[in-house]
């Protein structure tokens, strides 16, 4: 089953460091649909326009969990503007390239992020 996944993807999936929730998060975003097989929720702690802490909760496949974890690692330390520039391609690259059929899982991460940052602005 892991024949198409890179080692980095499998490692992230097996030992995600950023799974969890943030209580009193400054921004929360969600993307996906359980009937498609993936739901991704991202929690952000933001101070002075910088993302201090990022966590995720994901219902999804190997690629979805690995993408969520990679995204959170990429987010920590970035400004809100820098975070907005992260693309699915960036996440996939960091994971050593997702199989093409799974590329949408990394895009889902950026959608949850966008949802979180949009919610943050509204506040």
């Amino acid at each position: 089953m892991d024949k198409e996944y890179s080692e980095e993807t499998i490692d992230r999936f097996q030992d995600p460091e950023y799974s969890g929730e943030i209580e009193n998060a400054d921004a929360v975003g969600k993307a996906g649909n359980p009937s498609c097989g993936d739901v991704l929720k991202v929690f952000l702690k933001i101070e002075d326009n910088v993302i201090k802490k990022a966590r995720f909760k994901t219902y999804g496949c190997i690629a979805a969990i690995a993408s969520s974890d990679e995204l959170c690692e990429m987010l920590e330390g970035k400004t809100v503007e820098e975070a907005r520039k992260i693309t699915g391609k960036d996440i996939s690259q960091e994971l050593g390239e997702l199989p093409p059929v799974k590329y949408h899982c990394s895009v889902l991460g950026t959608e949850a992020l966008k949802d979180a940052l949009d919610n943050y602005k509204e506040e």
């Binding site: 089953m1 892991d2 499998i10 999936f13 097996q14 097989g37 993936d38 219902y59 999804g60 496949c61 190997i62 979805a64 969990i65």
Partner: peptide
Amino acid sequence: IEGEALSGYLN
């Protein structure tokens, strides 16, 4: 629980 993730952890 998503099935691929479950079989991935069992793997």
